[in-house]
Amino acid sequence: MDSRFLETFLIVVACGSLAQAARRLGITPAAVAQRVKALERDVGMELVARAGRRVHPTDAGLALVEHGQRIVRDVSNLRMQVSQGSPVGELQVGAVNTALTGLLPHALKQLRTSAPRLKLTLSPGTSPDLFAKVRSRDLDAAVLVHPPYALPKALAWQPIRREPLVLLAHRSMEGSDPLDLLRTQPFLRYDHLSWGGRLVDLYLRRSRIEPREWIELDALEAMAVMVDRGLGVALVPDWPQPWPACPNLVRLDLEPTAPRREVGLVWHRGTPRQKLLQLLLNVLGVIED
């Protein structure tokens, strides 16, 4: 069985379309169809069924998907282990949105130079969802907020940033006392169920402040835009640039003892992709205080 044909089949199933799979692979739809047909001949069963321009796996195809993903990853790991010179392999990495825009672009530019043969798949998501995918090995690693509990011993953690809470306010409030603004202005709350949002709860309780809440969401960029439009104030971590273009937005510092959101990389200890993950860690840098 040719692993390239198996990988093509898995991509076709994931895309649900020969044309879309072809774009992802950089080949023609006819070449994709030929690879799938060759795989079907190899296993002696029909693996996909076509309905117009869409395709979906047959029962045999579904069974192959479950085992095929493991085979493709094992082949990738083998190539990585025996390769000479430039590292080769594949990493599936998740990241929260602020890391996707603020941390990863510069790091990946360096990674492309040091490991041009590395194939990277990026998956956005919330910290709890990404953490669960790392635990289930659906992702090799993820850049996320540290969980509000001790990590399982099977997982490793490397801090990348510690981001202090700051108060976002409209430019007309620049120079005001942040605590007074929290008590008097409409409050946009960083979702209290999110791991970063729990730090906001901690700070408010410690400061004995009951804000005038009226919007709660887990979307930091959107909160910045709302504050810029004069909808209220918000407590958020000082995430890395770029930020939304908000000419009326100001960031007011809190006291030095205010909580900090720790962002880092989490992965399984003893993974066969440890060498590739170390390359990623190297370009992500060290803790910024």
Rank of each mutant, 00 (worst) to 15 (best):
A154C: 05
K119W: 08
G94V: 06
A95E: 07
Q158R: 14
L139P: 12
S123W: 02
L120P: 05
L139Q: 13
L111T: 05
S127Y: 11
A99M: 09
P128Q: 11
W157D: 09
S114K: 14
V134H: 01
G125V: 08
P159D: 04
W157G: 06
H106P: 01
V145H: 14
G102M: 02
L103M: 15
A154S: 15
V145F: 07
H106L: 06
P105T: 01
V145Y: 06
Q110K: 15
S114L: 13
S114G: 01
S127W: 04
P147C: 04
L151W: 01
K109Q: 14
L144K: 11
T126S: 15
L155S: 08
T98I: 03
Q110R: 15
P159H: 03
G94N: 12
V143L: 15
T126C: 03
H146K: 13
K119R: 14
F131R: 06
T101D: 04
T98E: 09
P105C: 05
G125H: 06
D140E: 00
P105M: 05
P124L: 02
L108T: 05
P147E: 07
R137D: 11
L144F: 07
S114E: 09
Y149K: 08
R117W: 04
R117M: 11
R137T: 10
P147V: 00
L139G: 13
L104K: 08
A150L: 13
L104S: 04
P147R: 06
D129C: 06
F131L: 15
S127L: 13
V143D: 03
P159G: 02
L108H: 09
P116K: 05
A132I: 03
N97P: 01
L108D: 10
F131H: 15
A154P: 01
L118D: 11
T101G: 10
A154H: 10
P124G: 07
R135N: 03
P105L: 02
P124M: 05
V145N: 12
L139I: 09
S127A: 12
A142C: 13
F131E: 12
S136W: 08
T101P: 00
A142L: 07
D129E: 13
V134Q: 07
A150W: 01
R112G: 15
K133E: 12
A107Q: 02
V143H: 00
V145M: 03
A132C: 06
